[in-house]
Design a protein around this nucleic acid. Structure first.
Lengths: 168, 168
DNA sequence: GCATCATGTAACATCATATGTTGCATGAGA
DNA sequence: TCTCATGCAACATATGATGTTACATGATGC
């Protein structure tokens, strides 16, 4: 069954937004995701309704992070996408009359519920800020491996640094 | 996303077969599952290749359990179905070049792997025999609740009792 | 041998959903 | 006013489970 990768995709663009000063256009985000700008708008629309991001039209417009990344977890993002089903398998019927099917559903259902609960719990433990820090760690490790430093960092920027001046 | 319910369905028919003396036709099993006989054959075909069930043509033919239900787990059955994906969500790309996406994939992937491992482990703990016993327990509880006993038990039969005579 | 029963299999239809794409309206800024 | 960007509807595409029909094959009973 084809897997829903919206969570993965939206996290990707959220972190790009976080690592970038000023708004990013759907086109720029779509380029990072190798997809279509409309797809980006579509999945970001849900996040906007939850106040996680903001969008602005016109020149200099685009998408910006509108939340504290330390307070938003991957589970929150998943919920903002409409809490799509996490499991690809399920029971055939909800309330079967057949005792056998009831027993099957109970056994399978318990395993499914446990797995779903674990997954959501894990997602709830990871914040956007933690992910961003992880990117930093990977960047450092990467630079350490290849001493060429700056050549490979095209995507990463310092997190939203306090701007003392408007331009250097 | 539409959930794959083949595991649930095939377990249902396996237990019916287990609780039934002699072969059961695809049509009978399909009736229990409220589906089409061809669908039953389709999902049972995988189990037959693993030796879990046997099928015979012609008069008196049909499907029979060909394994020790105490040694076959729900995980085995899932594997016999081709180990369909258990998770409905996943990462967008396998090996992204972008460091950010790598970090996202790692974090989400860990949660997904943990959930999948848990689910498969749980399924591996439950045997067909255990499910069958659970059916018996539910039957007893059911009979206890409604003292009418025999009226509701249309689906359940004693497990494969040793036959001393061919017919009563 | 022949009719009947049951599986085996291919082929096609259907439905749901993620994803991609185009087109156009709307609003903001230069 | 022109350009840029989002907002959104509409449609196309791909995938995969599921349902259905049709026909071939093999086994049993007569």
């Amino acid at each position: 069954m084809r897997r829903d990768s919206r969570l993965s995709g939206v996290l990707h663009v959220l972190l790009h937004m976080h690592a970038h000063d000023g708004p990013m256009t759907s086109a720029a985000l779509a380029h990072a995701m190798t997809t279509n700008p409309v797809v980006v708008r579509r999945i970001l629309a849900g996040l906007r309704e939850h106040g996680y991001v903001r969008s602005e039209k016109g020149h200099g417009g685009g998408w910006t992070l509108a939340c504290d990344p330390a307070r938003v977890t991957l589970r929150d993002v998943h919920a903002a996408l409409g809490s799509p089903s996490v499991l690809a398998i399920g029971n055939r019927t909800e309330a079967p009359g057949c005792l056998i099917e009831q027993a099957v559903n109970a056994a399978v259902g318990q395993a499914l519920d446990a797995a779903e609960a674990l997954l959501l719990a894990r997602l709830g433990e990871v914040t956007l800020a933690a992910l961003h820090a992880e990117v930093g760690a990977r960047l450092a490790a990467h630079q350490h491996t290849h001493q060429h430093a700056r050549r490979h960092v095209d995507h990463h920027r310092a997190p939203r640094r306090a701007r003392t001046r408007s331009a250097p």
